[in-house]
Amino acid sequence: MPLWWPLLLASLLFAIGVYGVLVRRNAVLVLMGVELMLNAVNINLVAFDAHLRDVLHGGQTFALFIIVIAAAEVGLALAIVLLVFRSHGHIDVDRLRGLADRDPPTEPSGGDGVTAHSALTGPGRTR
């Protein structure tokens, strides 16, 4: 098989991931785009590893580690996304404007804070 086949696949997958990152508004969907990008990287690494006959298996090892990193990232992402959801009531990246440059900076709970409160007292709580 020509070496460029997996490389081309990786390039296209990477580009699709970039598209996903740019176009999605939901934080979790953005993250899916990132996962596609990381997988593209792994294809590259594994293909090069096979091509180079790397005695250290640098490519494969790297790919393994990247998978683990991705898992750790997603685990943390879950917590962060839930944190945002609890305080804002949504995880829409475009609507997270509480820190924007032009907003009056002295109101930490203005604007989004209203939804934040309703989210906290909403049915999501079981106590």
Binding site: L83, R86, G98
Partner: peptide, 25 residues
Amino acid sequence: GDPRSAEAAVKFFLVSVISTAVMLM
């Protein structure tokens, strides 16, 4: 209890993981 802190975390997180992916490529 600070929504802005959560917002900071998610922005930082997304930008950082995206950049990591690009760098890894």
